[in-house]
Amino acid sequence: MDDKASSLRADPDPWLLILQTPGIGCRTYLKLLHFFDSPEKVLAATRAELQGLGLQQKSIDHLFAGNLNGIQLSLEWLGQPDNHLLTLTEAGYPPLLAAIADPPPLLFVHGDPAHLCQPQLAIVGSRNPSPAGLSNARNFAAYLAGAGITITSGLAVGIDGAAHEGALQQGATIAVTGTGLDRVYPASHRDLAHKIAKNGLLVSEFPPGTPPRPENFPRRNRIISGLSVGTLVVEAALQSGSLITARLAVEQDREVFAIPGSIHNPQARGCHVLIRQGAKLVETGQDIVDELSSLLGTLEIPAPARAPESKNPGFQLDPDYRKLLDSMGYDPISADALIATTGLTPEAVSSMLLLLELEEYVSSAPGGYYCRTEKS
Rank of each mutant, 00 (worst) to 15 (best):
R9P: 14
A10W: 13
I18Q: 07
C26E: 11
C26K: 08
C26A: 03
R27L: 03
Y29K: 01
Y29D: 02
L33C: 05
S38H: 08
E40N: 10
V42F: 02
A44I: 00
Q51D: 12
L53H: 02
Q57D: 13
S59T: 00
N69D: 15
N69L: 15
N69Q: 15
I71K: 08
Q72R: 12
L73K: 15
W77T: 14
L85F: 05
L88V: 10
G92M: 11
G92S: 09
P95D: 01
L96A: 07
A98F: 04
A101Y: 09
D102H: 07
D102R: 03
L107K: 08
H110C: 12
A114K: 13
C117G: 10
P119K: 03
A122N: 02
A122R: 07
V124S: 01
S126E: 09
N128V: 04
N136S: 02
N136P: 00
A137Q: 00
G146F: 14
G148F: 15
S153T: 03
A175D: 11
T177N: 03
T177M: 11
T179L: 14
T179W: 15
P186Q: 01
A193N: 09
N199P: 13
N199A: 11
N199V: 07
P207T: 00
P208W: 08
G209R: 00
G209D: 00
T210W: 09
P214E: 13
F217V: 05
R220K: 01
R220L: 01
R220F: 01
S225P: 06
G226A: 07
L227S: 09
T231Q: 01
L232K: 02
L232I: 00
E235H: 09
A237M: 12
A237Q: 09
S240Y: 11
G241Q: 10
G241C: 06
I244E: 09
A249Y: 00
D253V: 11
R254Q: 02
A258F: 06
A258R: 04
P260F: 05
I263S: 14
I263H: 13
H264F: 14
N265T: 13
P266K: 08
V273K: 14
V282Q: 02
E283Q: 11
G285E: 08
G285R: 06
V289L: 13
D290M: 00
L292I: 04
L296Y: 13
T298L: 09
P302Y: 06
P304R: 00
S310H: 10
G314A: 01
F315V: 02
Q316S: 15
Q316Y: 12
D318S: 08
Y321Q: 05
M328T: 00
D331G: 05
D331F: 09
P332S: 08
A337S: 09
L338Q: 06
T341S: 14
G343A: 03
G343Y: 06
T345L: 12
T345H: 11
L354K: 08
Y361K: 07
S364H: 10
G367Q: 02
Y369M: 08
